[in-house]
């Protein structure tokens, strides 16, 4: 039992990071019906921004978090403005290919400008271990969980309680009517990219805090996993992305705990495929009713 409880703590840590990234996929999908395949690489750039803020500028944790979120949000808005907006009315496959291209661009721009050599993230959080009953929790784990939880609560309230959040949800229901409420769809979409990218940067910093080696390709696998988490939870549904991330984190940690760790991704993804066969719209997803 203590062993399982300990694994749950690890699952929460991993799930928190996946959740922050998965939210970006689901938010952008909600307003644009586009899978932003560059999002994993936006997460990677966010990790590098955090690295520069911490290692080069010597900022402490909170300023690093805010600076990295702001810079990455700006990057997300620029990507939308330069790469996706011109294709808003193009066939969807063009936008998907552009997204893949933006991802490759970010990876190789980072590679060319900072080099392939992995960087070591300086420790920003004094490490200590707390014993809570049978479970050991590190300060790093606590910070990751609390920061992720706080950001998710803010996002959830923003989207559900404010007019701007309402406008984001309205765009996902009927984009063409939103301007008739006096709302600029372009601004809502730009805001969505800013929020999604900012959350990915937070995920990047938290990831680098837990696993302090960062390199230009780190966003590929993590990005795919967060994407899967968003789909499992129900793409386009914000609470679904959070739930899917913790389901995926839990599956990974439990498989790794009881089986050889090489089985981890294989079994975790197998389970998720199975889930999607029986519930293709995801755990909290809504079925798209296609009008004929």
């Amino acid at each position: 039992m203590p062993f399982v409880a300990q694994q749950m703590v690890n699952a929460l840590q991993l799930g928190s990071i996946y959740a922050l990234i998965a939210l970006g996929y689901t938010l952008v999908y909600g307003v644009l019906r586009l899978i932003n395949f560059a999002h994993g690489d936006i997460f990677m750039v966010g990790a590098f921004f955090s690295f520069f803020a911490a290692a080069v500028l010597g900022l402490p944790f909170l300023p690093t978090l805010l600076a990295s979120m702001a810079a990455t949000a700006l990057l997300g808005v620029m990507i939308e403005r330069l790469a996706y907006r011109p294709l808003r009315h193009a066939p969807r496959v063009s936008a998907v290919i552009t997204a893949l291209g933006v991802g490759l661009f970010l990876e190789h721009f980072t590679l060319a400008s900072v080099g392939a050599q992995p960087r070591l993230m300086p420790p920003l959080i004094a490490s200590a271990v707390y014993q809570a009953g049978p479970v050991r929790v590190t300060t790093v784990q606590l910070v990751i969980f609390l920061v992720a939880l706080l950001l998710m609560l803010i996002l959830d309230r923003f989207v559900n309680r404010t007019l701007t959040g309402m406008a984001m949800r309205a765009v996902s229901w009927d984009k063409s009517v939103v301007p008739l409420m006096g709302i600029s769809v372009d601004r809502i979409i730009a805001l969505t990219f800013a929020i999604g990218s900012g959350l990915a940067a937070a995920g990047g910093l938290l990831y680098a805090t837990a696993y302090p080696v960062i390199e230009p390709y780190m966003g590929v696998l993590v990005g795919w996993k967060a994407f899967v988490a968003a789909v499992v939870g129900g793409i386009g549904v914000i609470r679904g992305a959070m739930l899917g991330a913790f389901v995926l984190g839990g599956a990974e940690v439990l498989v790794a705990a009881f089986l050889p760790s090489t089985y981890r991704d294989f079994i975790a993804f197998g389970l998720l495929l199975l889930l999607l066969i029986f519930r293709p719209q995801g755990i909290l997803g809504r079925r798209e009713v296609q009008k004929v």
């Binding site: 007019l163 701007t164 309402m166 406008a167 309205a170 409420m181 006096g182 709302i183």
Partner: peptide, 8 residues
């Protein structure tokens, strides 16, 4: 509510 956006 969302229709008030224009006047905020």
């Amino acid at each position: 509510r969302i229709a008030h956006f224009a006047r905020v």
